[in-house]
Design a protein around this nucleic acid. Sequence first.
DNA 1: AGTGTATCCTGCAGGC
DNA 2: TGCCTGCAGGATACAC
Length: 276
Amino acid sequence: MPELPEVETIVRQLRPGLPGRRIRQTAVHHPDVLEVSPPTFQGQLQGAEILAVDRRGKNIVLSLSANRFLVVNLGMTGRLHLLDPEAPTDLPSHPAVTLSLQPEGTLFYADVRRFGLLRVLSAVEWKRESARLGPEPLEPALTAEDLHIALMRSRSPIRSWLLDQEKVAGVGNIYAAEALYRAGIHPRRAANSIAQGEAGRLLKGIRAVLREAIEARGTTLRDYRTASGEPGNFGPALRVYGRAGEPCPRCKVPVERIVFGNRSAFFCPHCQPESF
DNA sequence: AGTGTATCCTGCAGGC
DNA sequence: TGCCTGCAGGATACAC
C-alpha cells in the first residue's frame, strides 16, 4: 500500500478539515471493502461526528462520537480523498465508498483492486487491534536496544521481519528495501544475526527514509495519491527499490532484485553483503 | 517457527 | 492491433 509516509501524508491533510463534521450519508459502491453488509456499515456511521484523525501503522483512524473508530486500511490501491465542493477535482475511478458530510463536504474512498478495508470498531475492538501492531518506528520510545532485542527472537529474513506489522508498524516493501540499503544490511539476513550496532543503523535508516518520504509526501508508483489527489514526490529519491540493473548510488555496482516471501527485494550486492 | 504458495482484484508494460 | 505473461505500496490462510 501506501506505507507509513503515504498514510501520514493523507492524515495530515485530512486533520484540519474533518474534525467537527458529521457523517450525513453513506453510499457503498463496492461492499468488497467492507467486512459487514452495507446497511450495517451505514448504520454504524449514520450521524456520527468526526472528532480526530490519526494514524497507526498503515491505518487511517477516524475517532468518532459514541466511542467508535472508523479504521481505513488502503491495501495496495486505496485512496481517500476529501472533495472540496467549491473546487471540483477529477474524481478517481473505482469508487468504493462515499461519505457525505455535514457541513458540506465529501470523503471519498476509491480502490482499484479493492484490497483495502474500512471497519467501524468499538473502543475495545480498536484497542485490541492496535495492540497487535508493533511499535511506531518514528516514536522516540522505540530504542535501538528494543529493536535489537526483538530481532534476536526471530530467524526470519530481516526484510520479511520488517514487513510484519506485529514487529514494527507501518514499514512496507519500499521502505524496508530503502532502510536496509541505508543500513548496509542484506534483505535475506536472519533477524537474529543482526548485531547491536547494525540494529542501531537500521533504526536510523528506517527513521531517516520515513521522515524524508513524509517530507516528499510519499512515493507514487502508480495509484497512490494524497488526500487532495496529488502524487507523492519521493520516487526519484529511491536508491534501490525498483532499480534492478541500475548502478548503486554509492558504489556503482548494479542493484539486484531477488524474490522471497512472494515479494521482490532490491539491494546492492556490494554495499549489503549477505555474509562477512 | 518459518517458508512457500495461493487468494482477494485490476491494470499496465513488455514480448511476440 | 491483440494476446500472453509477469508484476504491483498489503494482508491472510494454508500445508508442510
